[in-house]
Design a binder for these strands. Structure first.
Length: 897
RNA sequence: GCGCGCGUAGCUCAGCGGUAGAGCACUACCUUGACAUGGUAGGGGUCACAGGUUCGAUCCCUGUCGCGCGCACCA
């Protein structure tokens, strides 16, 4: 016996365990050897993270696809795993050390620190996996991987070495985005442009020839002036032409720097003269690069590039003594003050400008000249662009392809080295002279070094680790066992679909494309489904600081995983953010209850599954009708999931279950289930059980827990079922739609609805039973007799009789062209009834007029397609007929008055 | 500056060349034998605005206004 209400919390854990024990999510199950493979790799969450709403959406959608395909008989692999998330994880552990007032990572040293991170991983690493299970994610957990486990590390090593040997990874000295808080280089993608209020300082640099005259430059970062190598002006700028080639004095540093001509300065902007600090500004670096062979740069220290800030945030020896070792903002203050004292500050403007910030540290990024490792992304991007152009990989929705192309076609070298400890250490060793040996192991590097130097030399390994996204880029093949030739790799690569958020198209999708194509010679996935962000109900991004974060686990506790999943699916329309309100989750929790109660109804009425029940054998009109409706629903849901229209799939299932099955089939089946006709009763029980089974299958990808539970409980002859719904066969129905059944049930529905409506309008109390008189032909009479009991119950009728004309003073309804009369003279106000009918007539007139207008339009008649023309004509006929019937009814009413 | 998207019922959103839909909220009524986490009925929309294409535009095109996002630049 089912409980009255569905209690998700009592069932979900048990069901999930049952799936795992049955190996329901295992790929390569023996019975599916011949089945077509279907694979998805999970976007690996941070191993020490916890489930947020974005994960909930992302994994719900994947789970829908995976469960759907599993039921369709495919050999499904949903490959799970977690990411080591270099910067994020290292930051968390460092914060912990600080909170516990323990020594910092530099004091404790690399090995001890890494030990701590591994401990933290061991401690918190299972959290997110368990949370995914609570959501119902049907991953093959046997195959769970971690980006820093042994196998994946081997893949990283091999990729790095091979790309290096192919010249696609190289070390280069160029400007990087330096994060002064985390003390590491980061990639362009990790830089966020933030609009801030700031100031623009205008400084006067005295001319060397004539110190009473000045050249004015402007800057937003005064402290960088100490590293200036030149002042640039536009070659056509008449104001400065005479100064080109002359020297100016760099104040405070007391160096002479040249005035050079370059296209870069915009004469319209500021003073038109730009200070060139090549080691601290990307544009200035370009200017320097163009002029690097000129004497005036060559003579300068360090090839003309003066680095002010070392990784320890100290200023180096090129910096005047009094500013050394200062924090950059402190240096800024002092330099401005000192220049002011010298009378060299021309003006200070208040401005709003965009300043680069580190996405993790949230501090201002410093362009900084260092040696880093780069991937030649431009070369790798070419086949990755081609693969999407040729349709080997498809983006859904398609418009994301443009974003992908824009970025890929302008791709910059990818800086992959990070000055962190947590991650894959770069497999590069240096000899005493700085010569680099990139190799799969230290031994291999030593051997190479010996060959090079002719003797054993002490080698030191590169301290840096790789960008986290480097290992993520290999995920679709590294998780399948690459570089080994595993059966899984052969079977499941390329994967079928990738489901991810638009925010990591560049970080992840693009890079998987590049690496997959390079190393596997095939795209990593055929479809990329890009979903939107989950926002709060007002449309704001969820963030801890705003306090508007919704916790998926709390929602699961409160409403059940199925309700949350269904909500996310129902709202996942392509190309639109999800604004999530708890009222929606509550609504779909109610839906779960509704399904539960429909099953309870079936149970109470002895609707048990009949083995071998053939839906085509149904004789009863009602059963034929619901079977046809089921077929329609199956078709809609199937097509929608196939095309990644999750919201349409969820909507179709919802409407079918609630508005069709519960609202009408259940109600109309009651007389059959309690009636005397044994054959009809048995068929209805079997049909109800059959349709309920189909419902539970259709909903399973969306609501796996409740459906699995109902499947289990509602076995044949009431026995608990041994098989798992997760492995059951997806509904396949055909040839069940029946026009005659549709028409009869449609009439019943229309009649009941019309009577209910008029009862309300006439203020007839719900408990009052009223008589109905049908003025109808033989066919309708037969129908009415067949549906007598249901009609009486659902429309609250005392009796149904038949007559040739309506009794005097009755309320007259037009249902499918025939009059249904409610003899209510004395009960209802006849004047009100007259008004009601007059309104009906007016409505008909409006309809007729609208159609007439169209039909009078020659162009319409000449150009509209045949079927539209027919439709309109039919509408006119219908409205006309309706109108005349109602007019007759009005006459009769008047006659009665 | 370049690109993408969005303005549809009070709210959150579907839809999309052929008479506007859902959920929530609202109003009224109903404890009828699956379900009050329910049922029944109802109110509520010049589909942002202006042009154009079309027999016909909420839907396609152009522009305007408003909002959001991404990328690039800013001495």
């Amino acid at each position: 016996m089912l409980e009255k209400n569905y209690q998700p919390s009592e069932i979900e854990n048990r069901i999930y365990r049952a799936w795992e024990e049955a190996g329901a999510f295992d790929c390569m199950r023996p019975e599916r050897k011949a089945a077509a493979p279907y694979s998805i790799v999970i976007p690996p969450p941070n191993v020490t993270g916890s489930l947020h709403m974005g994960h909930a959406l992302n994994n719900t959608l994947q789970d829908i696809l995976v469960r759907f395909e599993r039921m369709r008989g495919r050999d499904v692999l949903w490959q799970p795993g977690t990411d080591h998330a270099g910067i994020a994880t290292q930051m968390v552990v460092e914060r912990q050390l600080m909170e516990h007032q323990e020594p910092g990572r530099r004091e404790m040293g690399r090995d001890a620190f890494l030990k701590r991170v591994w401990e933290w991983k061991a401690e918190s690493g299972g959290t997110i996996v368990n949370q995914l299970k609570r959501l119902g994610a049907s991953c093959d957990w046997r195959r769970e991987r971690f980006t820093m486990d042994e196998g994946l590390s081997r893949a990283v090593l091999k990729v790095f070495v091979e790309l290096y040997r192919a010249g696609l990874i190289y070390k280069d000295k160029r400007l990087v985005n330096w994060d002064p808080k985390l003390l590491t280089a980061i990639s362009d993608l990790e830089v966020q442009q933030v609009e801030v209020k700031g100031q623009m300082w205008h400084f006067r640099y005295p001319l060397a020839d004539d110190p009473t005259k000045f050249l004015t430059v402007a800057t937003t970062r005064p402290e960088t002036m100490l590293g200036d190598g030149a002042v640039a002006v536009h070659p056509d700028d008449e104001r400065y032409k005479h100064l080109v080639g002359k020297l100016v004095t760099l104040p405070l540093a007391n160096r002479l720097i040249p005035v050079i001509a370059d296209e870069y300065p915009d004469p319209e902007k500021g003073s038109g003269a730009v200070k060139i600090t090549a080691a601290h500004d990307f544009n200035d670096f370009e200017v320097w690069y163009r002029h690097r062979e000129q004497d005036y740069f060559r003579k300068q220290l360090n090839g003309g590039l003066i680095n002010l800030f070392t990784p320890e945030a100290k200023m180096n020896e090129n910096c005047p003594e009094q500013y050394r070792g200062l924090d950059r903002f402190e240096a800024r203050k002092r330099i401005v003050a000192d220049l002011e004292a010298l009378g060299l500050v021309d003006q200070i403007e208040k401005i709003t400008h965009v300043v680069p910030h580190g996405d993790r540290s949230n501090v201002v990024i410093e362009p900084y000249l260092t040696d880093q490792w780069y991937v030649d992304a431009k070369t790798l991007a070419k086949p990755a662009i081609e693969a999407v152009k040729s349709g080997k990989t498809n983006f859904v929705p398609k418009n994301w392809e443009k974003t992908y192309f824009d970025w890929m076609e302008n791709i910059q070298p990818w800086c992959v080295s990070r000055q962190l400890w947590w991650g894959h250490q770069i497999p590069a060793w240096y000899g005493p002279d700085g010569k680099v040996f990139v190799a799969l192991s230290e031994d291999e590097a030593k051997a190479e070094a010996k060959k090079h130097y002719g003797r054993d030399e002490k080698l030191t390994r590169d301290e840096d680790v790789l960008d986290t996204w480097f290992s993520s880029a290999l995920w679709p093949f590294s998780t399948l066992g690459w570089p080994d030739k595993t059966p899984e790799l052969a079977r499941f690569y390329p994967t079928t679909a990738l489901v991810t958020g638009f925010d990591i198209i560049f970080f992840w999708v693009a890079r998987m494309m590049m690496m997959g194509l390079h190393f596997m010679k095939e795209v990593p996935f055929k479809d990329v489904y890009i979903h939107a962000l989950v926002r709060d109900e007002k449309g704001a991004k969820m963030s801890k600081s705003k306090g508007n974060v919704m916790d998926p686990l709390e929602l699961i506790d409160q409403y059940g995983a199925d309700a949350l999943r269904f909500t996310l699916a129902a709202m996942a329309a392509q190309g639109r953010d999800i604004k999530l309100a708890t009222s929606r989750v509550e609504g779909y929790r109610n839906f779960a209850t509704k399904i539960w109660n429909a099953a309870r109804f079936a149970e109470m009425n002895g609707a048990k599954r009949v083995a071998g029940f053939d839906p085509k054998s149904a004789k009863e009109t009602l059963n034929k009708w619901i079977l046809g409706e089921t077929e329609k629903a199956v078709r809609e849901v199937t097509e929608a999931i196939e095309t990644y229209k999750f919201n349409e799939a969820a909507g179709a299932a919802y409407r079918f279950v609630w508005s069709v099955f519960c609202d009408w089939y259940v109600e109309l089946s009651k007389p059959l289930l309690t009636g005397a006709d044994g054959a009809a009763k048995a068929e209805t029980q079997a049909t109800a059980a059959f349709v309920l089974d189909e419902i539970v299958k259709l909903l399973h990808p969306f609501m796996p827990f409740i459906t699995e539970e109902l499947w289990r409980v509602k076995g044949e002859e009431g026995e608990a079922r041994k098989s798992m719904l997760a492995l059951a066969e997806w509904p396949k129905l055909a040839g069940l739609e029946d026009a005659k059944a549709d028409s009869e049930i449609g009439w019943v529905v229309d009649l009941i609805t019309a009577i209910r409506s008029v009862r309300m309008e006439m203020n007839i109390a719900g408990g009052v039973q009223i008589p109905l008189q049908l003025i109808a032909g033989a066919a309708t009479k037969a129908r009415a007799e067949r549906w007598m009991e249901a009609l009486k119950r659902l429309a609250r009728l005392s009796e149904i009789t038949f007559a040739d004309s309506p009794p005097k003073g009755s309320v007259q309804l037009l249902v499918r062209g025939e009059i249904a009369a409610l003899p209510l003279a004395g009960v209802v106000d006849l004047a009100a009834e007259r008004t009601r009918l007059e309104k009906e007539v007016a409505k008909c007139d409006a309809d007729i007029e609208r159609v007439d207008k169209k039909l009078e339009n020659r162009d319409f008649v000449a150009r509209a397609p045949e079927e539209i023309l027919e439709l309109e004509k039919e509408r006119r006929r219908d409205a006309q007929e309706r109108k005349s019937k109602i007019l007759e009814a009005l006459e009769r009413l008047k006659g009665a008055a």
